[in-house]
Simulated assay, not measured.
Amino acid sequence: MAVPSRGPSGPPLRILVYSDNPRIREQVRLALGKRIHPELPELTYLDVATGPMVVRHMDAGGIDLAILDGEATPVGGMGIAKQLKDELADCPPVLVLTGRPDDAWLARWSRAEAAVPHPIDPIRLGDAVAALLRTAA
């Protein structure tokens, strides 16, 4: 069986976006849009509002990148990132949205591959996501 191509015309990449705040999830989707880079396929999004649902969807597979809000409550994205990296044998890349730039060390502790601070800067987020997706491909 042939493996589908991940080039520009391949199947869409699935991005899990976690935050308890629907405005943060919307900001992420709007910042990234449908196509982040000409070499990558279109993006589709799975919005998740609770920590247990993040774990459930990640366990099920089919996610190419997880973007987790480190400021979410009651379960923060950094704790979830650490749990996913500890428990999933083939965990996709994780990007954590931190409360401030100085919190990048916490994102590294959580084993996230990237961190972008709030407020969401579309260029900074887009560059980080494109780099993670191109590396994963």
Score class of each variant (00 low, 15 high):
A107H: 09
A107Q: 10
S9I: 02
A131H: 14
D102C: 03
E87Y: 01
W109V: 06
A137N: 10
E42L: 12
R25P: 04
E113Q: 15
D102T: 07
I15N: 03
L125A: 08
L46Q: 12
A128Q: 08
I80W: 01
K85N: 08
A2N: 11
G7C: 05
M78N: 06
H37G: 14
D69I: 01
Q27Y: 11
R108T: 14
A115V: 09
P74N: 09
L84H: 02
A81G: 02
A66V: 08
L125E: 05
W109R: 15
S110V: 08
D86E: 08
W109N: 07
G33P: 04
Q83V: 00
I80N: 02
A104D: 12
A66S: 13
N21C: 11
V3R: 10
T50W: 04
R23W: 09
L40E: 03
I63D: 04
D47M: 07
R134V: 05
S110Q: 07
L40K: 09
V129Q: 07
C91W: 01
E113P: 01
S9H: 14
G70D: 06
L46H: 10
L95K: 02
L30T: 13
N21H: 15
S9V: 05
W109L: 13
G10M: 04
D20R: 09
E71S: 15
R14E: 11
S5L: 07
T135L: 07
V116P: 11
R25I: 12
P122E: 06
A115Y: 09
V129A: 14
G76A: 12
A112C: 09
L13A: 07
M1K: 11
P74F: 02
Y18W: 03
A114H: 11
A107D: 09
R14A: 06
T73A: 13
V55C: 02
L30G: 04
R14C: 01
A131T: 12
I15E: 01
L46D: 09
D86N: 14
D127I: 12
G70Q: 09
L125I: 06
G62Y: 00
S19I: 00
V55T: 10
V17I: 09
A89N: 01
D69K: 08
R111A: 13
R6E: 05
A107F: 07
G10H: 07
P8W: 06
L132I: 03
E113H: 08
S5D: 13
T44A: 10
R14K: 10
M78V: 00
L32R: 13
T50V: 11
R23K: 12
N21K: 13
P74Q: 03
T50N: 12
G79R: 04
A2P: 14
W109T: 09
L32C: 12
N21Y: 10
H118N: 14
P8H: 08
L84F: 03
A131V: 02
A115H: 08
M78C: 05
V28T: 05
P92E: 00
A128F: 13
Y45A: 10
E113V: 05
I123S: 14
L46W: 04
T44V: 13
N21Q: 13
A131K: 14
D59W: 03
E113S: 12
D20E: 10
N21A: 14
G10V: 02
G77T: 01
I123G: 12
A131G: 10
L32V: 06
A112S: 15
K85L: 01
A104R: 15
R108S: 14
H37W: 04
Y18F: 14
Y45W: 11
T50R: 15
I123N: 11
P93M: 08
T44N: 11
